[in-house]
Every structure is written in structure tokens, then in C-alpha cells.
Design a protein around this nucleic acid. Structure first.
Lengths: 240, 240
DNA sequence: GGGGAAATGAGAGCGGTGCTCTCGCTTGAG
DNA sequence: CTCAAGCGAGAGCACCGCTCTCATTTCCCC
């Protein structure tokens, strides 16, 4: 035991992690809706009531899993993006596609955790504000790629905004990326949500018997999203 | 009682409908995951075991609600599309936007039913094949709009496909719309899933503090999706 | 019309759930 | 060393999905 952490504190940290690990394992088996605190406790060889010392309610356990999932996804995407950006001959389009494919890859590897954060919100559950930073990481990454493209030699193409959208576009720009054109910010937010539409449809079975060879389809679709954001021009294709 | 329907058949039909209605009501209160057959029965003043005469299991009740929701959404979208198509000066772009806005309107009006069909799949639940026709209605509608645009004077613009996607694109085209170019079919399927990404993000709170004035944002985004499908050319805007 | 099969409803019951409370034991800070 | 705080276990409450049994009602066929 260290001087700064007694047996009790250490046990608390380890048991908390063990509960979350076991919960994640059970999540993969049965989904969030049927996640049972008792089953987690049983598997860990402890009384169900003891789990409540660590998570005041089942929903609090879910919240913890949600924050962890956002962070896991964010870290995965950031790692891949950093790698893509460091590679020789890196282009904004290549980085954009890399981020999108990282998100898809994480989602396919952790479908139930993905469902937890991008699927139907849990019944009475309201995400606390603490989840916001973790939840924003992928979006910030996409903004960063667009920003670098904007600063780069190729610049960004823009589609004009209808009049009715301009005030909201200006407001969004001030909030999200004041250094980017409003046309780009609007396209960025749309592409961001459309990306998760593609992934959600694949993951939740909507592509069943519609799209079979999904990797190239996804790659093509997100490259077009990048084009919509103004990151690449028609005819340009990523190679990585 | 009519000659073709006895007391029993009529009662069965009415009670089945009453159970589904009450279930829908409770769905709005607590979400699909916590939908309780017992609570439905209690509210209807019948023994919980009696409900099993009408739905063999809770999941079967959910299936019925899912099919109903798909049909309700499909009917709403089809109605709006027919109206838009019949209006003087109707354009494919106008009809496309009308369909998308109808889907969004239905989703905002029936958020829990939307979550049921486009959100996280219910735990152990696997959608039976019987849901496929109802689930396809919106997609078919979008295909129809693209088909009419293809036949119309303006035609469809096309973005070339990467080589790796061509076999799958050809397969998809044969399955979905043999009379359309593969480039269009791929763009159509992508736009279809991206449409539900936009709606899902709005409905499930991901746009919280990101997009505030959502109607014009959505309208702009789906018009751009139409453009991606090749339905409208840059600069064209719907007016309806 | 009458009789038997099928449909229906009610109730008890099984094993499971989230969550609370109380009880003893252990740990750590004063 | 003491004593409050942290912790685990067990019992218990109200609820859940689902099954089984047992009356009662309806319908179909003879």
C-alpha cells in the first residue's frame, strides 16, 4: 500500500472498476435495458446490496458506463487521427476518412456501448452535464480537420446558405468554430450527424439485405461527406 | 353483431387494439425498455395473465407496436409525398424535401415510437421478417422520387464510384432499383441513412446546445442530401 | 337445438428484478 | 485507543415476465 492510498481507497477503486468491467461484459451479452445489478453482483461473488455502496442506483452505473464509452470512442478516434496526421503525405481528406473509419471500427467492436451513447436514451435517464466533454471529442476532431483544411493551400469550398438559416448558422459558428465560415460549420454539423446515421443503420440492422459489403460503401459515403464540408473537391479520393 | 364477425372476434379485435393503445401510452411515459405487460393489464382492469391470450410475450407486443409504427410513419410520409407530387409546379427536389420533413414531423410527434423503430434494438429482440415491408416504405418513397427525377427533363447528376465499391453498387442496384444508375443507388442509400442520422441526433438530444433553430437547418441539410443523390443541381432551392 | 371443442379470464405461483434497511465487522483518522 | 465512517451480507418490499390450472363463455358442427 502506498502512503497516499490506504487499503480501503485502493479496494474501492479496484472494486468500482471490477463492477464496471463485469457490467460491460454483461452489456455485450444482453444489452443495456436488461443490465441487472444483481447479476453483476452475483458474478462478482458479492451481495447485490453491496454494489449500492459503489453506485447508488442502476442508472448511475449506466451513467458511468456512458462516460467511459464516450471517452473510449474519443480516445480511439483521436489516436487514429493523430496517426493519420503524422503520416507522410497526410491530407485533410485522408484524416477525415480516418476519423470516420475509426468511429465505425469502434462501434463495430463495441456495439452495445455504442448503442448506449448513440442509441435510444435510457427511459427516465437524463445525461448529466459531465458527459458533455467526453461526448464532444469526436465532433471537435472533425472540426479540427476542417480547420486545418481551411488554413491549408486547398482551402474549403462552400455551398451558400439559404436566408432563413443564416442567423442560426452565425450563432452556431460563434459557438463552435469562429474561425470557420458559417457555410462550413453548418455542413460540418450536418456531416457529423449523418456520419452517425450511417453507422447506426449498419449497427442496428437497417442495412440488412440492403448493403452487404459495407466497408467500401462507408468509405465512399464519408468521403462524400468530407466533400460536402468542403474538405475535398470532386474527383479527389483518399488513398490511405 | 355482423354476419361475418361474432361477438368473440369483435371483442378480440377491440381488446387487442386497447392493449396496444395503452402500451403506446405507457411507452411515452417510460420508454420501450421498461414497458410492463402487468402495468398495461392493470390499467385496463384485467389480469396480467389475460394479456397473454392476445400477445404470447412482451416481445410480441413490442413487435406489433413496431409494425404499427413503421406503418404509421410510412403512411404519413406517403400522404405528404402524394400531396407534394400533386401540387402545381411540383419538382423532385420539392417532393424529396417534403418526404424528409414528413419523416421528421412524424418523429417529433411520436418520439418514443420513433425510438422503437430507429433507436437501439430491444435487448434480445430480433425483428421478424414481417416488419420488412412496413420498414421499407420510406426508402421506397425516396427511390420513387429519384426515379421520377431520373426520367424527368433535368435528369440526375452522378458522382463516379471508386472501383472497390462497384461490385456492391451493381448488386444493390439490381436489388433496389434496376432502372437507376448505380451511382445514384449508392447515393440514395447513403442519403437515406443520413436522413435518419439528422433526425436521430435531433430527437435523442445530440443537438442540445449545438443546433437550436432546427427546422431550417434540417431543410437545408436534406436539400443537400437531394443534391448528393443528383436530384437537384447547385443553386436550386425548394420553395414549397 | 344441443353438445363438445376452443377461446377467454382470473388467480396462484415461480424465479427474477431494483432498491432499502438493519446488522455486525473492518478500517482509518483524531 | 477510540470511535465514526466505510463496508458486506441478509432479509424484505414491491414489482416484473411468464406458466399453469380452473371456471366460464362462445362458437361450430351434427
Amino acid at each position: 500500500m502506498s502512503a497516499t492510498e490506504g487499503v480501503r481507497a485502493r479496494a474501492r477503486r479496484e472494486i468500482t472498476a471490477a463492477i464496471k468491467d463485469e457490467a460491460r461484459r454483461r452489456l455485450a451479452d444482453e444489452g443495456a435495458a436488461k443490465l441487472s445489478l444483481r447479476a453483476v453482483a452475483r458474478e462478482l461473488g458479492m451481495a447485490s446490496s453491496a454494489v449500492y455502496r459503489y453506485f447508488p442506483s442502476r442508472d448511475d452505473l449506466l451513467t458511468a458506463l456512458i462516460v467511459d464509452a464516450y471517452d473510449s470512442l474519443g480516445a480511439a478516434a483521436e489516436g487514429v487521427e493523430a496517426e493519420a496526421a503524422a503520416a507522410p503525405g497526410a491530407t485533410p481528406l485522408g484524416r477525415w476518412v480516418a476519423v470516420c473509419e475509426a468511429v465505425r471500427g469502434w462501434a463495430l467492436a463495441h456495439p452495445h456501448e455504442y448503442a448506449l451513447i448513440y442509441g435510444t436514451p435510457v427511459p427516465g435517464y437524463r445525461a448529466p452535464e459531465t458527459t458533455v466533454p467526453a461526448a464532444s471529442r469526436v465532433g471537435l476532431l472533425l472540426i479540427g480537420v476542417a480547420r486545418d483544411a481551411h488554413r491549408g493551400p486547398a482551402g474549403l469550398s462552400r455551398t451558400p446558405l439559404p436566408e432563413g438559416l443564416r442567423p442560426e448558422a452565425v450563432r452556431m459558428t460563434a459557438d463552435l468554430a469562429p474561425d470557420l465560415p458559417p457555410e462550413t460549420v453548418v455542413a460540418l454539423v450536418a456531416a457529423w450527424s449523418e456520419l452517425f446515421g450511417l453507422i447506426g443503420f449498419e449497427l442496428f440492422g437497417q442495412f440488412h439485405r440492403v448493403v452487404e459489403d459495407r466497408a467500401p460503401f462507408f468509405r465512399h459515403a464519408v468521403a462524400r461527406l468530407a466533400h460536402e464540408v468542403g474538405i475535398a473537391f470532386p474527383g479527389a479520393t483518399p488513398e490511405a
